[in-house]
Deep mutational scan, measured.
Amino acid sequence: ATVGSICDLNLKIPEINSSDMSAHVTSPSGRVTEAEIVPMGKNSHCVRFVPQEMGVHTVSVKYRGQHVTGSPFQFTVG
């Protein structure tokens, strides 16, 4: 992922509605921003955001307030 470019995290989660999901990204400096959740068809969801700084980011994806399997996810920008 690169700073200022759209970053997509694709998840396969069976039998949940994306409208019941939420996602937030925490940057290396601790800034928390909301991420967009895009339905991608049956059981597939895309978490979309634009990182604003380099370094390790943490993406928390929740369904009805509970982390989904594997969340929070970490990835490096830059």
Rank of each mutant, 00 (worst) to 15 (best):
Ala1Trp: 14
Ala1Pro: 05
Ala1Glu: 08
Ala1Met: 11
Ala1Gly: 15
Ala1Ser: 04
Ala1His: 15
Thr2Asp: 00
Thr2Leu: 04
Thr2Lys: 09
Thr2Phe: 14
Thr2Val: 05
Val3His: 01
Val3Phe: 04
Val3Lys: 06
Gly4Asp: 04
Gly4Phe: 06
Gly4Tyr: 02
Gly4Lys: 03
Ser5Gly: 03
Ser5Trp: 03
Ser5Pro: 01
Ser5Glu: 14
Ser5Asn: 10
Ile6Gly: 00
Ile6Val: 12
Ile6Met: 05
Ile6Ser: 06
Ile6Lys: 03
Ile6Asp: 01
Cys7Arg: 00
Leu9Met: 12
Leu9Ser: 06
Leu9Phe: 00
Asn10Ser: 14
Leu11Ser: 15
Leu11Phe: 13
Lys12Cys: 09
Lys12Asp: 13
Lys12Met: 12
Lys12Trp: 08
Ile13Arg: 00
Ile13Trp: 00
Ile13Val: 04
Pro14Ile: 06
Pro14Asn: 05
Pro14Ser: 06
Glu15Gln: 06
Glu15Ala: 09
Glu15Val: 10
Glu15Asn: 13
Glu15Gly: 15
Glu15Pro: 03
Glu15Arg: 06
Glu15Trp: 05
Glu15Phe: 14
Ile16Trp: 03
Ile16Ser: 07
Ile16Met: 09
Ile16Pro: 02
Asn17Trp: 04
Asn17Tyr: 12
Asn17Cys: 08
Asn17His: 07
Asn17Thr: 06
Ser18Val: 04
Ser18Met: 05
Ser18His: 06
Ser18Lys: 06
Asp20Gly: 09
Ser22Pro: 12
Ala23Ser: 05
Ala23Lys: 06
Ala23Phe: 01
His24Pro: 02
His24Phe: 11
His24Gly: 10
His24Gln: 09
His24Ile: 07
His24Asn: 09
Val25Tyr: 08
Val25Thr: 13
Val25Lys: 06
Val25Cys: 09
Thr26Gly: 10
Thr26Val: 07
Ser27Tyr: 05
Ser27Phe: 06
Ser27Thr: 06
Ser27Gly: 15
Ser29Arg: 05
Arg31Trp: 11
Arg31His: 13
Arg31Ile: 10
Arg31Ser: 12
Val32Leu: 09
Val32Pro: 07
Thr33Ala: 11
Thr33Pro: 11
Thr33Gln: 12
Thr33Gly: 10
Thr33Asn: 08
Thr33Tyr: 14
Thr33His: 07
Glu34Phe: 06
Glu34Cys: 11
Glu34Ile: 14
Glu34Ala: 11
Glu34Arg: 11
Glu34Val: 12
Glu34Leu: 12
Glu34Lys: 12
Ile37Val: 08
Ile37Thr: 07
Ile37Phe: 13
Val38Asp: 06
Val38Lys: 15
Val38Ile: 10
Pro39Val: 07
Pro39Gln: 09
Pro39Lys: 10
Pro39Asn: 11
Pro39Ala: 10
Met40Ser: 15
Met40His: 12
Met40Lys: 15
Gly41Phe: 02
Gly41Asn: 07
Gly41Pro: 12
Gly41Glu: 14
Gly41Arg: 11
Gly41Gln: 12
Lys42Trp: 01
Lys42Phe: 06
Lys42Ile: 05
Lys42Tyr: 02
Lys42Ala: 08
Asn43Lys: 08
Asn43Leu: 03
Asn43Glu: 14
Asn43Arg: 04
Ser44His: 14
Ser44Trp: 05
Ser44Gly: 11
Ser44Asp: 14
Ser44Gln: 15
His45Ala: 10
His45Cys: 04
His45Pro: 15
His45Ile: 15
Cys46Pro: 06
Cys46Arg: 14
Cys46Ser: 15
Val47Pro: 05
Val47Phe: 03
Val47Gln: 00
Val47Leu: 04
Val47Cys: 02
Arg48Gln: 07
Arg48Val: 00
Phe49Cys: 10
Phe49Tyr: 03
Phe49Trp: 14
Phe49Ile: 04
Phe49Ala: 03
Phe49Lys: 01
Val50Trp: 08
Val50His: 03
Val50Ala: 03
Val50Phe: 04
Val50Tyr: 04
Pro51Leu: 01
Pro51Asn: 07
Pro51Met: 02
Pro51Gly: 12
Pro51Arg: 04
Gln52Ser: 12
Gln52Trp: 12
Gln52Lys: 11
Gln52Asp: 08
Gln52Glu: 11
Gln52Arg: 10
Glu53His: 07
Glu53Asn: 06
Glu53Phe: 08
Glu53Lys: 10
Glu53Ile: 10
Glu53Pro: 00
Glu53Trp: 05
Met54Ile: 15
Met54Trp: 15
Met54Ala: 15
Met54Cys: 09
Met54Asn: 14
Gly55Cys: 02
Gly55Met: 02
Gly55Asn: 10
Gly55Lys: 02
Gly55Ile: 00
Gly55Phe: 03
Val56Glu: 14
Val56His: 11
Val56Pro: 10
Val56Tyr: 09
Val56Met: 11
Val56Gln: 12
Val56Arg: 09
Val56Leu: 13
His57Ile: 08
His57Gln: 10
His57Asn: 14
His57Glu: 04
His57Leu: 13
Thr58Asp: 10
Thr58Glu: 13
Thr58Lys: 14
Thr58Gly: 12
Thr58Arg: 13
Val59Glu: 02
Val59Leu: 02
Val59Gly: 00
Val59Arg: 01
Ser60Gly: 11
Ser60Ile: 13
Ser60Ala: 12
Ser60Tyr: 09
Ser60Arg: 08
Ser60Phe: 07
Ser60Lys: 09
Ser60Val: 11
Val61Ala: 10
Val61Lys: 00
Val61Thr: 05
Lys62Tyr: 09
Lys62Asp: 13
Lys62Gly: 11
Lys62Ser: 14
Lys62Thr: 14
Tyr63Phe: 12
Tyr63Leu: 11
Tyr63Glu: 13
Tyr63Arg: 10
Tyr63Gln: 10
Tyr63Pro: 04
Arg64Gly: 13
Arg64Glu: 15
Arg64Cys: 09
Arg64Tyr: 10
Gly65Met: 09
Gly65Trp: 07
Gln66Cys: 10
Gln66Glu: 13
Gln66Leu: 08
Gln66Ile: 07
Gln66Pro: 05
His67Trp: 08
His67Gly: 14
Val68Lys: 03
Val68Glu: 02
Val68Gly: 02
Val68Gln: 08
Val68His: 13
Val68Ser: 04
Thr69Ala: 13
Thr69Ser: 12
Thr69Arg: 06
Thr69Ile: 02
Thr69Val: 04
Gly70Phe: 00
Gly70Asp: 15
Gly70Gln: 14
Ser71Met: 04
Ser71Glu: 04
Ser71Trp: 01
Ser71Pro: 02
Ser71Lys: 04
Pro72Gly: 05
Pro72Lys: 14
Phe73Arg: 03
Phe73His: 01
Phe73Ala: 01
Phe73Gly: 01
Phe73Pro: 02
Phe73Trp: 13
Gln74Met: 15
Gln74Gly: 13
Gln74Ala: 15
Gln74Val: 14
Gln74His: 09
Gln74Thr: 15
Phe75Met: 15
Thr76Asn: 13
Thr76Gly: 10
Thr76Ser: 12
Thr76Leu: 08
Thr76Phe: 09
Val77Leu: 02
Val77Trp: 02
Val77Arg: 01
Gly78Tyr: 04
Gly78His: 01
